[in-house]
Design a protein around this nucleic acid. Sequence first.
DNA 1: ATTTGACTTAAAGTACGCTTTAATGATTAT
DNA 2: ATAATCATTAAAGCGTACTTTAAGTCAAAT
Lengths: 136, 136
Amino acid sequence: MPFSIKEASEMLGCPAHTIRYYEKEGLLPNITRDEHGNRIFEQKDLNWIKLMTCFRRTGMKVAALKQIVNLALQGESTIPQRKAILEEHQQELHRQQHELNEAFYAVNQKLSIYDEIQKGTLAPDRDLRMDEGKLQ
Amino acid sequence: MPFSIKEASEMLGCPAHTIRYYEKEGLLPNITRDEHGNRIFEQKDLNWIKLMTCFRRTGMKVAALKQIVNLALQGESTIPQRKAILEEHQQELHRQQHELNEAFYAVNQKLSIYDEIQKGTLAPDRDLRMDEGKLQ
DNA sequence: ATTTGACTTAAAGTACGCTTTAATGATTAT
DNA sequence: ATAATCATTAAAGCGTACTTTAAGTCAAAT
């Protein structure tokens, strides 16, 4: 059940150096060590790292994650603050969803313009243009 | 119909310095100048900048945008390469959508765990844990 | 025995995308 | 006339998140 940093790294798809970096930054407060000082990862640690990387990949800053951890370590009374941080990230996710939708629209439009040029349906001089007004 | 850099900046919600930086990097090849060397932005320029920032905000690198522009300047024969770049970005958008969905799930779950702790429905010692197995 | 490989640390380096600074010039307002 | 406001450039600086390097410890394999 316990894993080495290499195993953890492989299971998570996350470089061992990055895991050490996260621990140093205070994102992983409960990683124990064996008799040689080597890190031991349990399943719950992997789950926590998964959560951290999930939030990181969607743009939450290391400093914000650190803050959540620090608050959690102070106990239940800090739940309102933690909630506020997560709700802020939820907002950020909504913003990203909006940007993603716009980008999907734009890339699809560009690709179909290319198709039309290649089929000869469209004059070829629109290379550096958007179709006016369609992108908010 | 023509705009100063300040007007463009305000209309786009993008710092003037950033617009200059994009031009210097070759992302905006067709910006003309007035008799004093000041940039003049037309609606089509604004549309193009909008497209560039849309792609940038979703993680496309400045170098990739530059490459698209360079290819477009070489004419219609480069459409296949441009298409390839855009299709790669489309893949990237799908990856981001997946990450966004995971993050939405995780943040919602965390928030409802907080709610349950506050309502007394859940024991309060799960602060640093994910609910096992629910996040892929 | 010694080589191989996994682990440790602290610190320096890198990539990227701006952002700020500094030095200068022109137009408009008072 | 002079100050404020807008513009220009090149270059330096910055923030973030790693990533790499260097130097070392330990245990198993040859």
